Simulated scan of single mutants.
Amino acid sequence: MIIQTERLTLREWRDEDRAPFADMSADPAVMRYLRALPTRQACDQWIDFQIKHFAEHGFGFWVVEDRATGTFLGATGLFRVFFDAPFTPAVEIGWRLARAAWGQGIATEAARASLAFGFGQLGLDEIIAYAAPANQASQNVMCKLGMIRDEASDFDHPRVEPDSPLRRQVMYRLPREIWAKGEAP
């Protein structure tokens, strides 16, 4: 499956994506608010998880590449939340981009295409997103997507160490009916 936007191609993973993904994941700035992938093996396992998720659910995180050049820019997409929380079951949208792709609206453009797929092709009723409170850049993208801040659903991530600054997560939601009305900015 391939999704194209004005500037981007979102596609499933290939073996040649492993090295640029590992390079991106080795950048401390990229990983500042994400759970660490400290080794090439951990990066490969993350990609393998995405491939498996696609096979089981028909969606996952796509590779994001520059449509004109084919340059690897990062990953974005949808996946089922696999931990117990008051808001599960749920489908989350997320993104991680190489630093060279920051500040160009790429995360927003790729995420909009992911939302259209989730609501259009998958028929989801709601898509959520969450981030560490200090991750203002991701929260800005969530707002640009028209997602609604839900402070009552903020939570401590069960897969993050209790003393980590990434443990606390702020919640955003986008119901299908809001998306369908085109109320997102």
Rank of each mutant, 00 (worst) to 15 (best):
L8I: 05
Y130D: 04
M171Y: 08
A101K: 11
A184K: 09
S114G: 15
D17H: 13
L122T: 00
E183F: 13
Q41L: 11
R18P: 01
G105N: 11
G118E: 01
E177A: 11
Q50L: 03
A107Y: 08
A101C: 03
P89N: 09
R167H: 14
E161K: 11
V141C: 10
L145A: 12
R176C: 09
A98R: 14
I127K: 12
F21G: 02
A107M: 12
C43S: 15
G146I: 02
R168V: 02
P158Q: 00
A85Q: 09
T108R: 14
E92T: 07
E151Q: 12
V170N: 07
F155A: 01
S153K: 15
L174N: 03
D48E: 14
G77T: 03
A180W: 01
D15V: 10
P185Y: 07
K52I: 02
Q4C: 13
L10T: 04
F59R: 03
R112Y: 13
T108P: 08
M1E: 14
I51W: 11
R149E: 05
A131M: 13
G182P: 04
E109P: 11
D48Q: 13
L145N: 10
I93W: 14
E92G: 08
M1C: 10
I2L: 11
I106H: 06
P158C: 00
W62F: 06
A116G: 14
V64F: 04
D163T: 14
Y33D: 07
A101M: 07
F155V: 02
Q121F: 05
D84R: 09
L37P: 04
D17A: 07
G77N: 07
A131F: 10
A184S: 15
R99F: 00
A42K: 07
R112G: 13
G94S: 05
L115A: 07
D154G: 08
F119H: 09
F117Q: 08
L122N: 09
V81Y: 10
A134Y: 01
V170W: 13
A116L: 07
P38R: 03
A110W: 11
V170T: 14
F83M: 06
G74P: 09
T88G: 01
E177F: 02
D27L: 00
A152I: 01
F59T: 05
E56S: 11
A36N: 08
I3V: 15
R11T: 09
C143L: 15
G77C: 06
V141A: 06
G123A: 10
W102D: 05
T9L: 12
K52M: 13
L166I: 07
I51F: 06
W95N: 04
L122F: 11
D125F: 02
Y172T: 01
M31V: 00
S25L: 00
A42Y: 03
E92C: 07
R80T: 09
W102M: 00
L78E: 04
D17N: 04
A111H: 09
A19S: 11
A137M: 05
T88D: 04
R80S: 10
A111I: 11
L78G: 12
P158G: 01
H157K: 02
G123T: 02
Q169F: 04
